[in-house]
Computed example of a mutant assay.
Amino acid sequence: MTSEISILNLFLEASIVVQFIMLLLLTTSVVSWAYIFQRNAVLKAATKEMKTFEDKFWSGADLNKLYQELSSRAHLTGLPLIFCAGFKEYVRLRKTSGALSEAIMDGTYRSMRVTMSREVDELEARLPFLATVGSISPYVGLLGTVWGIMNSFIALGQVKQATLAMVAPGIAEALIATAIGLFAAIPAVVAYNRFSNRVEKLENAYGNFMEEFSAILNRQNMASSSQQVP
């Protein structure tokens, strides 16, 4: 590509509106990539944390010791946090005099459910931004293209004899806006779909653990209640 029609020259010679749209799309693309790397790191850490906890939990570790070990940490997320929230509520309700078995289990499950909802919200952070970028960036780029082509035809109408050399730069600078819009949209759409699938898998894993953990606590609660019956 020659210097006369280089991308930089086309950008500098574009109208203020087209330049603004290009800069907006480029900024959006940079922010999207930052969010993509950040979300990928968060989801990767959450998956690793879940697998590590499940290995320890299903290895037959004592629930009280496991709770004490996890609760001593400064910061908990994901499955360990759900476990601690459920076990803490279970112990608290067990100490409540006159608490029915169903009330204990309902309260325990509700506590874990609220914690899981918050954790999923954290995992889904920034995903709406990626979805928005993926859906509207092509249209924003198209707006820049339409505006640039419109200006080219307006300028073309002011000359007596039009040539391709006169029209090409204006059309080229207009099409660059669409290209930048696609450049911003495609990675955002791919990342959104991939991250949404990973969040869904984590949410399903959290839900399955809650069901299994509730069943374990229910069995313990029933065994303790039967031992207290004279």
Rank of each mutant, 00 (worst) to 15 (best):
T47D: 11
D55I: 04
G107N: 04
M105Y: 03
T28N: 03
S71V: 11
L26K: 06
P80S: 09
T77H: 13
A85I: 01
L43Q: 10
L26S: 13
F87S: 02
E49A: 10
N64P: 00
S101R: 15
R73D: 06
L66C: 03
D106L: 08
Y109T: 13
F83V: 05
L100P: 01
L63D: 06
D55S: 10
L63E: 09
E89Y: 00
L93R: 15
W58I: 10
T28C: 14
L93C: 08
F57T: 06
V42D: 12
Y90T: 10
W58T: 05
D55A: 13
R92T: 13
F53C: 02
F57Q: 04
M112D: 12
K88E: 12
T96R: 15
A99Y: 06
E69M: 04
F57A: 02
T28H: 01
A103M: 09
L70K: 06
F87H: 09
L100W: 01
K95V: 06
V31R: 08
R94C: 05
Y109N: 04
I104Q: 11
F37G: 09
S32R: 11
V31Q: 10
K95R: 15
I36E: 13
A41P: 02
A85P: 00
Q68W: 02
G78E: 11
A103P: 00
L43V: 11
I82R: 04
M112S: 08
L66T: 12
Q38G: 03
R39L: 02
L24H: 01
L43F: 07
K65D: 15
K48I: 09
S59L: 05
S101L: 15
T108C: 09
A74K: 14
Q38W: 06
L24N: 02
A34P: 00
Q38Y: 10
L63M: 12
T47G: 13
D106R: 13
G98R: 12
L100N: 14
D62K: 09
T96Y: 08
G107A: 04
E89C: 01
H75I: 02
T47Y: 09
F53P: 01
A41M: 10
L63H: 07
T108M: 15
E49H: 05
W58V: 07
A46L: 04
E54S: 08
Q68P: 00
S59E: 12
L43P: 05
L93T: 11
C84S: 06
V30D: 07
T52L: 10
R110A: 14
D62P: 00
W33A: 02
E89Q: 11
E49F: 01
W58M: 07
L79S: 05
E69A: 11
L93D: 09
S71L: 03
G86P: 00
K65I: 07
T96C: 07
R94F: 03
